[in-house]
Computed example of a mutant assay.
Amino acid sequence: MSCRTTPHLFDPRRADEGIAPSRRRYERAREICAVCPALAPCRSWAMTVPTTALGGLLPNERLAPKIAR
Protein backbone atom coordinates (compact mmCIF):
# COMPACT_ATOMS: atom_id res chain seq x y z
CA MET A 1 0.00 0.00 0.00
CA SER A 2 1.07 3.56 -0.61
CA CYS A 3 -0.33 7.08 -0.66
CA ARG A 4 -0.71 6.66 -4.41
CA THR A 5 -2.93 3.62 -4.09
CA THR A 6 -4.93 4.84 -1.07
CA PRO A 7 -5.02 8.65 -1.39
CA HIS A 8 -8.33 8.91 0.49
CA LEU A 9 -6.53 7.99 3.71
CA PHE A 10 -4.63 11.27 3.50
CA ASP A 11 -7.61 13.55 2.91
CA PRO A 12 -8.80 16.08 5.48
CA ARG A 13 -11.66 15.06 7.73
CA ARG A 14 -15.01 15.43 6.00
CA ALA A 15 -17.87 17.30 7.67
CA ASP A 16 -19.91 14.07 7.77
CA GLU A 17 -17.04 11.95 9.15
CA GLY A 18 -16.84 11.23 12.86
CA ILE A 19 -13.71 11.79 14.89
CA ALA A 20 -13.04 8.08 15.51
CA PRO A 21 -13.22 7.05 11.82
CA SER A 22 -11.04 10.02 10.91
CA ARG A 23 -8.50 9.08 13.56
CA ARG A 24 -8.38 5.45 12.33
CA ARG A 25 -7.91 6.66 8.76
CA TYR A 26 -5.06 8.99 9.77
CA GLU A 27 -3.42 6.21 11.80
CA ARG A 28 -3.49 3.95 8.74
CA ALA A 29 -1.95 6.78 6.72
CA ARG A 30 0.82 7.07 9.33
CA GLU A 31 1.51 3.34 9.09
CA ILE A 32 1.93 3.69 5.35
CA CYS A 33 4.24 6.68 5.76
CA ALA A 34 6.34 4.91 8.38
CA VAL A 35 7.60 2.34 5.88
CA CYS A 36 7.80 4.62 2.84
CA PRO A 37 11.26 5.16 1.32
CA ALA A 38 10.22 8.69 0.30
CA LEU A 39 9.26 9.80 3.82
CA ALA A 40 11.97 12.48 4.24
CA PRO A 41 11.31 14.41 1.02
CA CYS A 42 7.56 13.91 1.39
CA ARG A 43 7.63 15.27 4.93
CA SER A 44 9.59 18.32 3.79
CA TRP A 45 6.97 19.00 1.14
CA ALA A 46 4.11 18.22 3.53
CA MET A 47 5.28 20.94 5.90
CA THR A 48 4.03 23.44 3.29
CA VAL A 49 0.55 21.86 2.95
CA PRO A 50 -1.48 22.39 6.15
CA THR A 51 -4.70 20.56 5.22
CA THR A 52 -4.12 16.82 5.31
CA ALA A 53 -2.10 13.94 6.78
CA LEU A 54 1.10 13.95 4.79
CA GLY A 55 4.64 12.93 5.53
CA GLY A 56 3.40 10.87 8.45
CA LEU A 57 2.20 13.99 10.28
CA LEU A 58 -1.26 15.35 10.96
CA PRO A 59 -2.01 19.01 10.14
CA ASN A 60 -1.70 20.14 13.77
CA GLU A 61 1.68 18.39 14.04
CA ARG A 62 3.03 20.17 10.97
CA LEU A 63 1.87 23.54 12.24
CA ALA A 64 3.17 22.97 15.78
CA PRO A 65 6.54 24.46 16.76
CA LYS A 66 9.35 22.53 15.15
CA ILE A 67 10.74 19.84 17.44
CA ALA A 68 13.18 17.04 16.76
CA ARG A 69 11.47 14.37 14.70
Rank of each mutant, 00 (worst) to 15 (best):
S2C: 09
C3K: 10
C3T: 15
C3V: 11
R4Y: 12
R4A: 14
T5F: 06
T5S: 12
T6D: 14
T6A: 15
P7I: 12
H8A: 14
H8C: 03
H8I: 05
L9W: 02
L9A: 00
F10H: 07
F10M: 06
F10L: 06
D11V: 13
D11S: 15
P12E: 03
P12F: 05
P12R: 08
R13Q: 13
R13M: 06
R14I: 02
A15S: 07
E17R: 01
E17I: 03
E17C: 10
G18C: 05
G18H: 05
G18L: 01
I19V: 09
A20S: 09
A20V: 14
A20Q: 04
P21S: 02
R23N: 05
R24W: 14
R24A: 15
Y26T: 10
Y26A: 04
R28D: 02
R28V: 07
R28H: 09
R30G: 07
I32M: 13
I32W: 08
I32L: 09
A34N: 10
A34S: 09
C36N: 05
C36D: 05
C36V: 10
A38G: 04
L39M: 09
L39T: 01
L39N: 01
A40H: 11
A40M: 13
A40W: 11
P41G: 08
P41F: 10
C42W: 02
R43L: 08
R43I: 00
R43V: 00
R43H: 07
S44C: 08
W45F: 09
A46C: 07
M47Y: 00
T48N: 00
V49Q: 14
P50T: 01
P50Y: 02
T52D: 08
T52R: 13
A53C: 14
A53Q: 11
L54S: 03
G55P: 01
G55S: 01
G55E: 06
G55K: 04
G56K: 07
G56W: 14
N60H: 14
R62D: 11
R62A: 06
L63I: 14
A64T: 03
P65E: 15
K66I: 12
K66F: 06
I67M: 15
A68C: 01
A68N: 11
R69P: 02
